[in-house]
Write a protein that binds this DNA or RNA. Sequence first.
DNA 1: AGTTTGACTGGAG
DNA 2: CCTCCAGCCAAAC
Length: 109
Amino acid sequence: MKDYPDKMNVEQARAFRDDVLNIVAQIPKGKVTTYGHIATLAGWPSHARMVGRTLRYTPGAVVLPCHRVVNAVGRTAPGWSKQRQLLEEEGVKFKANGRVDMQSHLWLY
DNA sequence: AGTTTGACTGGAG
DNA sequence: CCTCCAGCCAAAC
């Protein structure tokens, strides 16, 4: 009896995607959260990469505050320089090394 | 059907 | 603080 699922079927994949988008929509302005945290909230702790893929390839994710999602160390998404600008516009501070100041902006549901 | 690819993560050096 | 690496897993090749 496994206590946590290890393989997704089609319905679970759809539910996972919907959960991810729903969670991202709830991130408060001026806050950020991580891919891993979203994956955990969705019930699939080891699927941080899939959260990233979902936000990257799902049309419609662009209307969500997906710029408020950064990796575990506060790094912004590669190839998306505008993300930092969008965050700074809503008051998120970056450290000298280019990472988000997680200590003051990390949001955990 | 086997291999490569990441909007990831945590640990090592 | 940085880079490198193994583990990760669905999707794309």
